[in-house]
């Protein structure tokens, strides 16, 4: 792949939008945005072919900075809007960006059904283990025992593994990375864009402002170094024993399978329906 220069990335940013963006200093969302723009610029797609859809929360503000068709929807519903867009215009590349609360709490139902349906939507879930924009309340991915503004005595609920959930629900492509592993993230997002069917890339990202501060995890740099320590490439992960896996997680492509996408099945069904109708009304 040819190198992507920052100037190309700048070309995908909206020039009439005010910068710097709204996120906290050091927020992983900015790193993800850059990574997504590099992946898009390398995908060979025209800006007019891409639609970026988000929900609510910090991640919800991402599409507005990108010079493509962008839709900032309601909380948790990005995938439903994306479903309508993709069905209406199958030729478009529809990418949704959601947070962990957005995708797995309020929008959890839409996530599993979108995965089951396997409509060709590319989904990026940025997982910072908390509700950042609303002030650090616990989310479905907040670790057991962690503090949150709604878990002052420590979190007592087990958390979702977003990648495993997406895989089980039927996604064609599932991968995990972190904003620290940014070159890997570039590659995975590139694969996500190229892969037909429903795909999910889970991106671990620090929320040092809310989650980090409440749990004394230090700066975003410290939190990103934690990703480095705990994240293990999937190839190596497979060779690890249960004890070595403790407290760590695999990074890379977790699921990559070929299965009929909703678009293809729908086209086939519609053609059959049209043929049946022609038979009936010659």
């Amino acid at each position: 792949m040819p190198p992507v220069h920052r100037s190309v990335v700048y070309g995908w940013l909206r020039h009439d939008k005010k910068f710097p963006h709204v996120w906290c200093p050091g927020c992983g969302l900015g790193i993800l945005l850059g990574s997504l723009l590099r992946a898009l610029s390398q995908s060979g797609l025209d800006k007019n072919q891409v639609v970026l859809v988000s929900g609510i929360g910090c991640s919800g503000r991402l599409p507005v900075y990108v010079d493509v068709g962008s839709v900032h929807t309601t909380h948790g519903r990005a995938l439903t809007f994306a479903t309508g867009i993709k069905l209406a215009k199958p030729e478009l590349t529809v990418i949704t960006v959601m947070g962990d609360g957005d995708a797995t709490a309020i929008g959890g139902n839409h996530l599993i059904h979108a995965a089951r349906r396997n409509l060709d939507i590319k989904t990026v879930i940025i997982n910072n283990q908390t509700y950042g924009m609303t002030g650090g309340q616990y989310s479905p991915t907040t670790p057991l025992g962690a503090k949150a503004t709604t878990a002052p005595y420590g979190h007592i609920e087990p958390s979702f593994d977003i990648s495993a959930l997406s895989a089980t629900a039927g996604a064609s492509f599932v991968a995990r990375s972190t904003v620290y592993h940014v070159t890997q993230l570039d590659q995975l997002l590139g694969q996500l864009i190229a892969k037909p069917g429903f795909g999910v890339v889970e991106v671990l990202s620090p929320c040092h402002t809310n989650f980090g501060r409440q749990n004394r995890l230090g700066s975003q740099v410290d939190m990103m170094l934690e990703f480095k320590k705990r994240g293990v490439r999937v190839e190596r992960w497979q060779k690890l024993g249960p004890q070595e896996r403790e407290g760590r997680y695999p990074l890379g492509v977790l699921v990559d399978r070929q299965q009929p996408s909703f678009d293809d099945s729908y086209q086939a069904m519609a053609a059959q329906a049209a043929a049946l109708r022609r038979e009936k009304q010659p």
Partner: peptide, 25 residues
């Protein structure tokens, strides 16, 4: 049969969301 999209969504929230997306498209 007319070559247009129809979908039964997972709930009513999703149904209207899909309609908004389709209308924008």
């Amino acid at each position: 049969a007319l070559g247009h999209p129809f979908i039964q969504m997972e709930d009513e929230i999703a149904s209207l969301g899909a309609c908004i997306g389709a209308s924008l498209a």
